[in-house]
Structure formats: C-alpha cells, structure tokens
Amino acid sequence: MAVRLDDKLLEFFKRPLMCIIAAASAAGRPSVGRGVGFDVLDDKETLDVVFSAWQWPRLEADIRQTGRIAATFVSPSDYVSFQLKGNATLQDTAARDLDHAERFIMAATEELASLGVPRSIIAPWLTAREARVARIAVREIYVQTPGPLAGMLAGARSQ
C-alpha cells in the first residue's frame, strides 16, 4: 500500500539535507550510494531521487535488477532523519533533475560547511556525474532520528 508524505515530512524536505541510498541485488547483497537531489511528485506518494551512476554503478545495477530501494534523508544540523522504502524504477534524466541536484548539492555543502566540515572534504561526496533518477513509489516511512522514536512509522497511509 502506498504511503503519502504528510505535511510534517513535506516541511522536513524543504530543509538542507543529506541523502543516502541502498538497494540490494537478487542475491541479497546490499549496494549503497549517496543521493544528490530529489523531488516529491504531486501525488506525494512518489519521490524522484538523483544519484551518480559514475560513483555508484552497483547501486544503479541493483535498482535495475530488483527495484528494491531504501533512502534515508538526514538534516545534518540536528540529525532528524527519515527512511523511505519502496520500489524504484530508473527514469530518463531531465534538465529539471539536474537543477534539483545542483540546488541540493549547494544547500548540503553550505549546511555541512556551516557545521565546521571543511569544503574540501565534502566535495568528493556530492556529484551528479552520469546522473540517474530513481523514481520511488513509497511504501514505508520510518523515523530514523536517534532516540526513542527511532524505527517508528511516519507519514500517512493512503486510502
């Protein structure tokens, strides 16, 4: 059953965020990468996440193979985090995806730099080279902020 992002989550997605993504091969071996941009689609149940196939080729292969995906978004300043899980398909990359990536990378870099992380360290993490877009039909959302609510379901069940 699809899950809809509620207003609280939509507000969260306006903050400067970091994103990490996992998929798994048919043999159950996990793959991993960093997201460098995203867009919540109008239905609020689907999310496009941009990543670099150049940096994370295994992630691309696994999404193509199994479509199982998890993406965690974290606000670096206070560690508020949510993990979205669902099925993903790879979409053609459009100019607007690259725009999302550019904005995301700029905001994340500024946020981390303001927290004292040197820019020279951040630069290797965030690239849209050979950008791919994973379109995620969200099935589950979990709170992943460290603390008592970690692991609780978030978001709204769709009717």
């Binding site: 990490i20 996992a22 798994a24 991993v32 995906i69 998890a70 993990q83």
Partner: peptide, 10 residues
C-alpha cells in the same frame, strides 16, 4: 538487506 531482499540504510 532483510531475508526478503528489502534494503535498509543508516
């Protein structure tokens, strides 16, 4: 990844 292949990341 869980036994059914659902990934998890943190």
């Amino acid at each position: 990844a869980s036994a059914d292949g659902t990934p998890n990341i943190s």
